[in-house]
Design a protein around this nucleic acid. Sequence first.
DNA 1: TGACGCTTGTAGCGAGTGCTACAAGACGTT
DNA 2: AACGTCTTGTAGCACTCGCTACAAGCGTCA
Lengths: 174, 174
Amino acid sequence: MSRETLLPPLVAYVMQHGLADASLRPLAKAAGTSDRMLLYHFGTKDALVAALLEYLADMFADALDTAFPQERARSRRACAQTVYDITGRPEFAPFLRVWWDIVAGCSNSNAAYFDAAGRIMDVLLAWVVDHLPEGDPDPQAGARAVMTAIKGAQMLRTVGRPDVGEAGLAALEG
Amino acid sequence: MSRETLLPPLVAYVMQHGLADASLRPLAKAAGTSDRMLLYHFGTKDALVAALLEYLADMFADALDTAFPQERARSRRACAQTVYDITGRPEFAPFLRVWWDIVAGCSNSNAAYFDAAGRIMDVLLAWVVDHLPEGDPDPQAGARAVMTAIKGAQMLRTVGRPDVGEAGLAALEG
DNA sequence: TGACGCTTGTAGCGAGTGCTACAAGACGTT
DNA sequence: AACGTCTTGTAGCACTCGCTACAAGCGTCA
């Protein structure tokens, strides 16, 4: 048993039950150990969560290129719509749940959450840049516009106002 | 002491310390009572939180017309930028912190959070509709596009990527 | 005065929290 | 065989959580 062995089942548990109320004993049970051992390997619960978030960010980076289509989108709007649609599928719900926990953690000035969120955003931004149409006049600016719309629409969807966010996506130019 | 007397200090406490880890005893202390009394008045912690969120939503509706400018914006982009700038001021940080807690709660299918979030979004959407330029061709669609951009930009700001969201705001047409 | 209901205080329950002290086993080195 | 280090289990600490049982104070009305 090492950190590397423990992390996958821990992340799986967090994706299923949320990050906010994940405590040592249930986490340990999910990974087949004891709270005692988690603290032995990670030192502190905060360190555990930090390692967990780091692993999660890497996992997200890997997932992007497998779950998402390889070819470029036909327009900025189509690119945003694709990401929005895919992240709306039920198998993505666990990840989004954790994501909003992370955002809430950032809002409470938690450094580990902040780092993980930043890394995830950078990865997604780079992915969007690479999937904009070939002829996009300004891929950097385009990707940022697309990202903003995606995240706004995702938020509006999770609070029960999907129509608002989808209108926002439709209003993207290019 | 009644619910109405209790709610303002309770909401103040929540805005300062976050909604996620607000437990009965600290809340009671902030309101000058005991946990025993909070449960006496509200019955359950869940009911307390529900009442709190309802009060918060109403408070937000009231705040919109006082803290925000009365006149209409000169463009959709300007309207979004105004809301983004105002909500970026330090005195708005407590409200945003609670907001992300609410979104995280929605993502965990909490009904009370869901209701409050929906109400707040509706209020804000109506406000945006009323503050778009007179000549906007489609205020409903415009307000939705503005809302999506605002919320996306706010999220990107709280996770430490303000430049991305601001580029998204700048890309708003009209 | 006495009975009744509304409000409040004291004290505690059982469960869960992060974390730790202590000891025993496993295992390689000398 | 003896030692020392790494890994693991047992048991428990002090604390917080939401919630409740019980009773005392309170004003009101008969």
